[in-house]
Design a protein around this nucleic acid. Structure first.
Lengths: 225, 225
DNA sequence: GATATGTATTTTGTATATAATATAAAAACA
DNA sequence: TGTTTTTATATTATATACAAAATACATATC
């Protein structure tokens, strides 16, 4: 058999609505589509070279995700981002990150701890080199490992959506993803608490970590005004 | 001006997709559409006398809600309900109900407390008369008041979806919404903690309330087997 | 000039048509 | 008989078409 032809990977198939959903989602999170901006079906469909149908379906999904708001018969627009809004999200996130981290302390495997340590080290390394993209990536990985170790699928689902919204806010309003010095310390503490399997401590550190973010955002907003 | 004409309420207008979404959602929660049951677009569309389009959109929304699972190009089916699944939900709910209740203790108005007391009394009254429908209704109202008093819109949104899923599980597997005697006591304790504005106590009682439900479900499942 | 009123245009809502894929049944073959 | 291949059917995915409503703009009226 000819070795040139690689097997078609059917798992690569993504419905158009998924592709468009992700495209729009990333555009919104990256701030390319700004809060309040109208999303018109034909326009988007033309721009992306597809029909209205998959665009409509993608917009519906974005609505449920909280990134888009719809008014019947009027249309869809990118969801506004108020400070109240993001504070609400962070309030919930503090609670759920606390839960996830304490569950992780209970349930993580020893390999899991090793993985976590490694990602932490990479995170520290990037942060010290002021490699922003790398730092963000490892930050996300670090928390994903913790969520995953919680063993609670519902929790994983909800927290990842919440994080997305915080990320969007930061990108739009804070611009610089200020790699606060304390961030490294906070991650280390969380890691240590988990590796010691200290549930309560893990929860405490995780919640402080989120509350700190809320503070940073509040301060950053004060400086803007 | 003639007094005969009442103002047309434009808010009454609901797109078909909304109507169908709610219809299907209620059918799933009520257990009329059983876990694993296939949802075929033409069939549903015919049965409801509409075209496939709004049905598709409704199904997409249900997927995001976690009530339906979709496999691309194969179709949609009512989401399965595993015990692990519902335990995950309850684990998250315990945390978020704790948060909501402690926030409510902080932020509720004095009128809010009065409303809560009244609903509690109605709840107790229905429960003592073994009026199941009334009890459930007041149960939901009681918790809605607390969520509302938390002042956190994100929290309200997430908790109501979680409650829906628990409710669905109960309807399908437990049949009788066993109005456990302790339930009345638990509600009273929660109310008292809130009215005393005791944040920590409120959180504790709220979490215990949910954990109790988890226990009840586990025990009920044991008896079935 | 301000306020209606009518008309054209845009945009969403819903229905239908066509294409691609999956499933099930029938036929061919070993 | 059991297994593969073919064919038919059912079903989803996407595109298009048409209807209904919202918006914008022009025109008329006072």
């Amino acid at each position: 058999m000819a070795g040139k032809l690689s097997k078609v990977n059917f798992n690569d198939y993504k419905p158009l609505r998924e592709v468009i959903f992700n495209t729009l989602r990333e555009a919104i999170i990256a701030g390319e589509l700004k809060p309040g901006e109208r999303l018109m079906e034909v326009k988007l469909a033309d721009k992306m070279g597809v029909s209205r149908t998959p665009v409509r379906e993608a917009i519906r999904k974005l609505e449920l995700e909280g990134l888009v708001e719809m008014i019947p018969r009027k249309g869809a627009h990118v969801a506004e981002l108020s400070v109240k809004n993001i504070m609400d999200v962070l309030e919930v996130r503090a609670s759920l990150d606390g839960l996830a981290t304490s569950l992780a302390a209970d349930r993580i495997s020893s390999e899991g701890i090793k993985d976590l340590e490694q990602v932490l080290m990479q995170f520290v390394s990037y942060a010290e080199k002021d490699n922003l993209q790398g730092t963000i990536k490892k930050d996300v990985e670090f928390h994903d490992l913790i969520y995953g170790a919680s063993g609670n699928d519902k929790l994983i689902d909800i927290t990842s959506k919440l994080r997305e919204q915080v990320h969007r806010f930061r990108v739009i309003y804070l611009k610089d993803y200020s790699s606060h010095k304390d961030l490294i310390e906070e991650h280390k503490f969380i890691y240590l608490a988990i590796s010691k399997r200290d549930r309560e401590l893990a929860k405490e550190y995780a919640q402080k970590h989120i509350n700190k973010q809320a503070e940073i955002i509040i301060n950053a907003l004060k400086n803007i005004k």
